[in-house]
Design a binder for these strands. Sequence first.
DNA 1: CCTCCTTGCCTAAAGCCTTTAGGAAGTTCT
DNA 2: AGAACTTCCTAAAGGCTTTAGGCAAGGAGG
Lengths: 189, 189
Amino acid sequence: MARAGVTTERLVRAGAELADEAGFAQVTVSELARRFDVKVASLYSHVKNSHDLRTRIALLALDELADRAAAALAGRAGREALVAFADVYRDYAREHPGRYAAAQLRLDPETAAASAGVRHAQLMRAILRAYDLTGPDQTHAVRLLGSFFRGFVALEADGGFDHSSPAPAESWARLLDVLDSLLRDWPRP
Amino acid sequence: MARAGVTTERLVRAGAELADEAGFAQVTVSELARRFDVKVASLYSHVKNSHDLRTRIALLALDELADRAAAALAGRAGREALVAFADVYRDYAREHPGRYAAAQLRLDPETAAASAGVRHAQLMRAILRAYDLTGPDQTHAVRLLGSFFRGFVALEADGGFDHSSPAPAESWARLLDVLDSLLRDWPRP
DNA sequence: CCTCCTTGCCTAAAGCCTTTAGGAAGTTCT
DNA sequence: AGAACTTCCTAAAGGCTTTAGGCAAGGAGG
């Protein structure tokens, strides 16, 4: 019997593509087996179980995102950096909805600590260095940005902005300006 | 055979409780049948299918949320209203994580239009009446608040704030103040 | 070249969830 | 009481997950 040449690597990559096509929830060991034209049980030599597969896809996505974010931040600071970083997120979510959903998967602490999630946090902090924020307000600001990015992208993906008029892109651009202003002129407690 | 007294109403309510206990993803027709001590197929007289069940739970959650929000807003305006409204969201998500997750379920357009989601949008607009925002900036502001609430609550639930120091509650309070400032002193384009 | 062993893939089987079809026993209304 | 409806049941098919045990392809070493 000719070997199909399945590897964990290829499996995860195919899983990511499947996620983008059909949604992260549809990523199933069975469907991947079908795509590799292999029996389901065979995949269990390459992946521990369904959860393991999903986790690996999540890690791939986090990695890709961090890479893009780091590239976008190179040579930029202040408003430019903020916008570039934010766009990386939004664009990635739009280009790769399944992978983006995967990146939201809750990881167990050890896995999370070893993931590219850590890089994300560092990059966000780096953006804020251009602004004059001290002490806890720096953390608050990180959380504001993180919350806004995540929430906006989620709402846009859910069609939450579909039935009101300015296109999401317009709000996105305007709000990034507003947030830049806010960071430059951060209100005192 | 003694009747178990299952009704769509009781099913949805039990589903909501199950969601809060075990997570929205664990809400399954089978598990509910177990809880009502009834055969699985029996439930299909009360609910069209699994998706129908989840949708009903989502609608219940949206309704409860809108009720709470409306109550919180009564007699308040400006910063007070903003904080009260925001707390309703965050508290609901913490008290009823499963229901809150259900409320995020993507509904088809007709269902969404008939849901309490519409009330949410109106309440949010009502809050902004206290601030001096005109034209598209009003929509932008609604989107900023919505994104922030949703993102913050999601990140907190995912434990995204677990390994940095100020407690989420502290950032939440501070950031609501910051946003209130921002709305009062909204930057010109 | 040819064993030997690792590894990829397979069959079998059990467990759990969903959904449909068709039937029997309570409930309700006339 | 009898008809009509509703609730619940058994049966059965189909899908996904996961484990156990086996055969054969391909590379390593003699």
